[in-house]
């Protein structure tokens, strides 16, 4: 590949778009940028995963810091779940070193399919629960009680302080481990899994879950990146434009997100995800079984 202005610009633009859509749809850029690098730029899967993982740290820093600044992030909850996500990331990235490319592509396609399903299956009932003061009245399990896991934040939409107690710590840890594993293996943030688990099983308001997840993604992706770095899988010439692009795209996307309604976005998301899942599946079958399914890119 000739490292020309056009190559860098194309990769940069692709990364900006991936970061933008990622932020707009409330997922990291990773689930878009990995398929783009593999399907459009024909990069080897492991190099794409490693580059994406590094750029995930950048977007986590950018997005996470503003939630920390507004005290929406629950630092204690984050630190606690990070124990599970980092162990998950370590096992995921070790697995990535040994798995064949086509298997990683196949797993990536499956993850995309799950994400498409999850986008429609999850329902945000936070508004009603906040109005009822529900979040402060939950029974804590022993672990979350022992670790003083609770918090409060100012909800701008409801214009009130929302208090909440955290429940279901063991379940949360289990899901956090899986999310970390997905991150290390596939080069994504795993935010969707963590956010929905915190919201559904741990009695954490959506905004707190999003902010806390963003903070965790940084150190989780760092663990995977360290292993890939030491295994010699990080292509710096690819990482640079990808990290720059996703950071820029995610920053703009976050600004726009607050002014958009999500109903039509969900359909756009579903179509995009379905196509990328198909593309990754086709590529996996092509590598392993030399089947040629038509792909646009």
């Amino acid at each position: 590949m000739f490292y020309s202005l056009s190559f860098v610009l194309l990769l940069l633009i692709a990364a900006v778009i991936a970061g933008f859509f990622g932020a707009l749809l409330g997922v990291g850029g990773g689930i878009f940028i990995v398929p783009v690098m593999v399907l459009m730029f024909h990069l080897p899967m492991k190099i794409a995963v490693a580059a994406s993982l590094v750029s995930v740290i950048a977007t986590s820093n950018a997005g996470g810091s503003s939630y920390v600044d507004q005290h929406i992030t629950n630092l204690r909850l984050g630190m606690f779940l990070e124990v599970a996500t980092t162990i998950g990331a370590l096992s995921g990235s070790v697995l990535a070193l040994y798995l064949k490319d086509w298997l990683m592509l196949l797993i990536f396609a499956l993850m995309l399919a799950y994400m498409g399903y999850a986008a429609f299956a999850t329902r945000n009932v936070d508004d009603e629960r906040i109005a009822a003061g529900d979040f402060a009245r939950a029974r804590q399990d022993r672990l979350s009680a022992y670790l003083d896991l609770h918090g409060s934040y100012h909800d701008e939409a409801a214009d009130r302080v929302v208090n909440y107690v955290v429940t279901g710590a063991p379940t949360g840890m289990g899901v956090a481990y899986l999310a970390g594993m997905a991150s290390g293996l596939l080069g994504v943030g795993g935010g969707v899994l963590k956010v929905s688990a915190m919201n559904a099983y741990m009695n954490v308001p959506m905004k707190v879950a999003v902010g806390t997840s963003k903070l965790m993604i940084g150190v989780t992706a760092a663990v995977g990146s360290i292993l890939f770095f030491m295994a010699g899988l990080i292509h710096f010439y690819v990482v640079a434009p990808v990290a720059l692009g996703t950071t820029l795209g995610a920053t703009v996307g976050t600004l726009v997100m607050n002014r958009l309604h999500s109903a039509s976005l969900k359909w756009l998301f579903a179509i995009l995800i379905a196509y990328l899942a198909y593309g990754m599946l086709a590529k996996a079958l092509n590598i392993q079984f030399h089947l040629h399914w038509p792909v646009l890119a």
């Binding site: 590094v54 740290i57 950048a58 986590s60 820093n61 990070e82 940084g218 150190v219 992706a221 760092a222 990146s225 360290i226 770095f229 990080i234 710096f236 010439y237 990482v239 640079a240 990290a243």
Partner: peptide
Amino acid sequence: MLVATLLLILTPVSRV
């Protein structure tokens, strides 16, 4: 770019 990558990786580590 190698140093930039290292720095990025070390950011969350130093946060910890």
